[in-house]
Simulated assay, not measured.
Amino acid sequence: MSETILSNARLVLDDEVVLGSLLIRDAAIGGISLGASRAPGAIDCDGDLLLPGLVELHTDNMERYFQPRPKVAWPGRQAAVAHDAQIAASGITTVFDAVTIGDHGVDGVRGDGVGAMVEALEALVERGLARVDHRLHLRCEVSAPNALARFEALSARSRVGLVSLMDHAPGQRQFVSLDAYRTYYQGKLGLTPKALEALIETQLGNSQRYAAAHRTLIAEHCRRVGLTLASHDDATVEHVDEGLALGVGICEFPTTREAAEAAHRAGLAVVMGAPNVVRGGSHSGNIGASELAAAGHLDVLSSDYYPASLLDALFGIVDAGIGFDLPRALALGSAAPARAVGLDDRGRLAEGLRADLLRVRLIDGHPAIQRVWCQGRQVH
């Protein structure tokens, strides 16, 4: 049995911040006490904050390591190691790595490269090389012709813990405006006007043909095997009602206040992007995460495309002056996401839970990570 004592730390508990000490016993929190410890060998944290490790439900950060540039495929082991290191350095000790299921013809890494990404990540974990706990989040593009086949090929993987239903076809949810769709993909892909219109026509046909059936069949599978299901980009109360009928438990990135309010009222965990908080609003003109937090309709923050944004956003919610103290804000990135996916062994500082911990020092008001532990092992 190995033991480590972290002393003279400001412990962020469920409802308060106290100066105290925390015992790490093997992979778990062995005890919490007030005041500094006098035990020989105790590590003096110099009054730094001690937080539970962050739980990330939705990040596609891994994709950029496997395809750092268009048409550039990076070796799998190296890509997985680099991604894992960045996640650990961002204070995230449990991550649901998002991979897109269903090739809708516009993102190369989200097509044939998905299997290679999953295999490389699983190999990293199985070899004991991963710093943090990696799970899989299957983002199902329901309008893609091959979405169901690819979902069936990956859904039985042991690390799959979350499934979301997306439809990025023109005219749907995030792209209810065809002009918004044109602007986004013209900027992303640099297509000629003729090629862009051909893409829109193809995507509209695929959405009409496949989306409803794929959404239903994937949801049925998740209910049958007990996988947590999320909706994505809900824009209306009708979208929320549709998700409830399918059995979703999480509402990811609602685009309007009406949808977020309806989802929260129905008991769904409302997830918004941490970059939205850090940048002061949505880059696509949707509802702001801080606005939802102030209204009481925000449950979880996710780093989405920028891992380091999660910790910054949690402290930003406190600084926004909208009624969040540090324990309440921190729960948006730790206890709440853990609870949303049924992980009751982490996300809080409490005896018996996993020793997933962050030592954080405030420097000019900014949270700077000093140390990260995952199951009692220092990983950063």
Rank of each mutant, 00 (worst) to 15 (best):
M1C: 13
I5H: 05
A9Y: 00
V12G: 01
L23H: 04
R25C: 13
G30W: 01
G31H: 08
I32S: 11
S33Q: 13
A39R: 15
P40I: 12
I43L: 13
C45W: 00
D48F: 00
P52W: 00
L54Y: 02
E56G: 02
K71C: 11
V72Y: 14
A73N: 13
G76C: 11
A79E: 01
A82L: 14
A82C: 14
A82R: 10
H83G: 07
D84P: 01
D84V: 04
A89V: 01
S90L: 04
F96S: 02
D103V: 11
G105H: 06
D107S: 10
R110T: 05
R110Y: 09
D112F: 12
G113D: 09
A120F: 04
L121C: 10
L121M: 14
A123E: 14
G128H: 10
R131H: 08
R139Y: 05
E141M: 08
E141D: 09
S143A: 15
L154K: 02
A156Y: 08
R157E: 05
S158W: 07
S164C: 12
L165A: 02
G171C: 09
R173L: 11
D179G: 13
T183E: 12
Y184T: 08
G187S: 07
G187N: 08
A198V: 15
L204N: 06
G205C: 14
Y210H: 14
A213T: 12
T216P: 07
A219I: 06
C222L: 05
R224H: 12
G226F: 04
L227N: 08
L227Q: 05
H232A: 05
D233I: 09
D234A: 07
V237R: 10
V237D: 09
V240L: 06
E242Q: 14
E242Y: 11
I250L: 07
I250F: 04
C251S: 15
C251M: 14
F253K: 04
P254N: 11
R257I: 13
A262N: 05
A262H: 06
H264A: 14
H264P: 08
H264S: 13
L268M: 09
L268E: 01
M272G: 01
P275W: 01
G285Q: 12
N286M: 11
G288T: 07
S290I: 14
L298K: 02
V300F: 05
V300S: 06
L301N: 01
L301D: 00
S303E: 03
D304Y: 02
Y306E: 14
Y306A: 10
A308V: 07
S309I: 01
L310C: 02
L311I: 00
L314N: 03
F315P: 00
F315M: 02
G316E: 02
I317Y: 02
V318D: 07
G321F: 08
G323H: 06
D325H: 06
P327L: 08
A329K: 01
L330V: 05
L332A: 04
A338G: 13
R339L: 13
A340P: 03
G342Y: 12
L343F: 12
R348A: 04
A350P: 08
E351Y: 09
L353P: 03
R354A: 12
D356N: 06
L357T: 01
H366V: 14
G376Q: 04
H380Q: 07
